[in-house]
Amino acid sequence: MTVSALTRPGERDRLTVKLTEIDWLFVLVLCLIAGAGSLMLFSIAGSSWTPWAAAHASRFGICIVILIALAMVDLRMWFTLAYPIYGLGVLLLIAVELVGDIRLGAQRWLSIGSFSFQPSEVIKIGIVLALARLYHGVSAERARLSWWLFIPALMIAVPVLLVAHQPDLGTALLIAMTGGAIVVLAGLSWKIIATAVAGVLAVIPPYVIFGMHDYQRQRVLTFLDPESDPSGSGYHILQSMIALGSGGLLGKGYGLGSQSQLNFLPEKQTDFIFAALAEEFGFVGCASLLILYGAAIFMALRTSYLSHSHFGRLAAAGVTATFTLYVMINGLMVMGLAPVVGVPMPMLSYGGTVMLTVMIGFGLVQSVRVHRYSEVTSGKGSFV
Rank of each mutant, 00 (worst) to 15 (best):
V73S: 06
A143L: 09
T377C: 01
P51V: 04
F274C: 02
T195N: 02
L277S: 04
H310M: 11
G251H: 06
G381L: 09
S4Y: 00
T270Y: 04
L224H: 07
D271I: 04
P230H: 07
Y305D: 12
P9H: 05
V334Y: 07
A164G: 01
L39R: 11
I360R: 10
L30C: 03
F298A: 14
G179E: 09
G37L: 10
A315R: 03
K252N: 08
A106Y: 02
T171F: 05
A53L: 03
A69G: 14
T16K: 13
F117L: 13
G253T: 02
F79S: 11
E375N: 07
A69E: 01
I242H: 05
Q118F: 03
C63M: 03
E21L: 13
L110T: 08
L238F: 03
I33C: 04
V208L: 10
V334S: 09
A5S: 15
T353G: 13
S47D: 08
E121C: 04
V376Q: 05
W24I: 09
G282V: 04
A132F: 04
S38C: 12
S116R: 13
R12D: 00
F26I: 02
I44V: 15
G294N: 09
M155H: 04
A316F: 10
L277A: 01
M359P: 07
L262W: 01
D13F: 07
G247R: 12
I329D: 00
G180C: 08
S288G: 15
I193S: 04
